[in-house]
């Protein structure tokens, strides 16, 4: 198992990334994640064998046109159904803990 001494990523970064991703990790999970990420980052390092300075990135493939839709209102047939799967709702709205701005 990787330790905190590894060079691609450290435990603080794992915690920071977990916060960005809104994942609560236990101390054990943090350690395991550190090891797994370290292994993957070591592996993907092989990409640096390639000189890509003059290469354009590819974000999409296939036969992608420029499809657009017309500005036409399509009324939702059953707005109630949007809350059908809601874990908590009130007054036709989704309920969450009080947000502090």
């Amino acid at each position: 198992m990787a330790t905190e001494k590894t060079n691609k990523i450290n435990l603080d970064q794992v915690r920071h990334i977990a916060l960005l991703a809104r994942l609560e990790l236990t101390a054990d999970e943090e350690q395991r994640m550190l090891g797994d990420l370290e292994q993957m980052l070591e592996y993907v390092d092989k990409l640096n064998e390639l000189d890509t300075a003059a290469v354009e990135p590819t974000a999409q493939v296939g036969d992608i046109g420029a499809a657009m839709r017309d500005d036409v209102v399509a009324t939702c047939d059953d707005p109630q159904s949007i809350l059908a799967n809601a874990p908590d709702a009130r007054e036709q709205m989704f309920k969450v803990p009080k947000i502090i701005e």
């Binding site: 960005l20 991703a21 890509t52 290469v55 990135p57």
Partner: peptide, 25 residues
């Protein structure tokens, strides 16, 4: 976690963008 890291500030070019360029190759 890996994907969030690959897009995060300071790592985007080294990981995500690099991978997109290799995709071109």
């Amino acid at each position: 976690m890996l994907g969030t890291f690959a897009l995060s500030t300071g790592y985007y070019d080294a990981y995500y963008l690099k991978a997109q360029k290799v995709r071109t190759l």
